[in-house]
Amino acid sequence: MTPASRGLVRLLNTAGGRVLCLAGNIDAAAVDSHLRRYGREPMPVEGIDAGSVTGLSAPALDLVLDHLDAAERAGRPIRVRRSPAVERLLTAVGR
């Protein structure tokens, strides 16, 4: 996979708060790049936008689940926009 075809993982500050945005086919390298930039601890987010994800690697799924778990532990419900690929994976793990 070339860097141009790799998916993206970004933290965006929006009017509604911080959002973890994922797009495309999120491979381990994209997740690693995100973790190098922001650290391993999940950032507090108000939402996850994964509506344009076409594929999630195991590390990408872990990243999403880590953010969902951190929000749950903090008592903060967050909204999740899911593509069909993300819906299938999150449903498979009981989310």
Rank of each mutant, 00 (worst) to 15 (best):
I78W: 00
G55D: 06
G51E: 02
V53F: 01
G39V: 06
D69C: 09
D69S: 15
R73C: 12
D49H: 07
R73N: 10
P77Y: 11
A74S: 14
I48P: 00
R73M: 10
I48E: 00
P42D: 11
P44C: 13
H67Q: 03
A50Q: 00
L65F: 05
E41M: 11
M43G: 09
G75P: 05
L65V: 13
A50P: 04
A60S: 00
G39Y: 02
D49T: 10
A71T: 09
A58H: 11
D66T: 07
R37C: 03
S52R: 14
D49A: 06
D62M: 14
M43K: 11
A74R: 12
G75I: 13
S57F: 02
P44R: 10
R79L: 14
D49L: 03
D69N: 15
D69G: 10
G47Q: 05
S52G: 04
R79S: 15
E41K: 14
E46R: 15
L56C: 08
R37T: 14
D69R: 15
T54S: 05
E46T: 13
E72C: 06
D49Y: 02
M43L: 15
P59H: 09
L68Q: 06
S57W: 03
R37M: 07
R40P: 01
L63M: 07
D62G: 09
A70M: 05
G39S: 10
L61S: 04
P77D: 12
M43Y: 12
G39I: 06
G51A: 08
L68T: 03
R73L: 08
E41H: 13
I48D: 00
P44E: 11
R73A: 15
P42Q: 08
A71H: 00
D49G: 05
H67P: 07
G47K: 06
V45I: 11
R76E: 12
P42M: 10
E41G: 12
D49E: 10
P77H: 13
M43P: 01
H67K: 07
R40E: 15
S57K: 03
R76H: 15
P59M: 08
S52D: 13
V53P: 00
R36Q: 14
R79I: 09
A60M: 07
L56N: 04
V45G: 01
L56S: 04
L68C: 10
P77C: 11
R73I: 09
T54P: 01
V53L: 06
A50V: 00
V64C: 07
L63H: 04
A70V: 08
D62Q: 11
L65D: 01
G39E: 08
A74I: 10
G47S: 11
L56M: 13
D62V: 10
A60Q: 04
A74Y: 05
L63P: 04
D62I: 08
R37F: 06
G51R: 03
G55W: 04
E41P: 02
L63A: 11
S52L: 05
I48N: 04
S57P: 02
L56P: 01
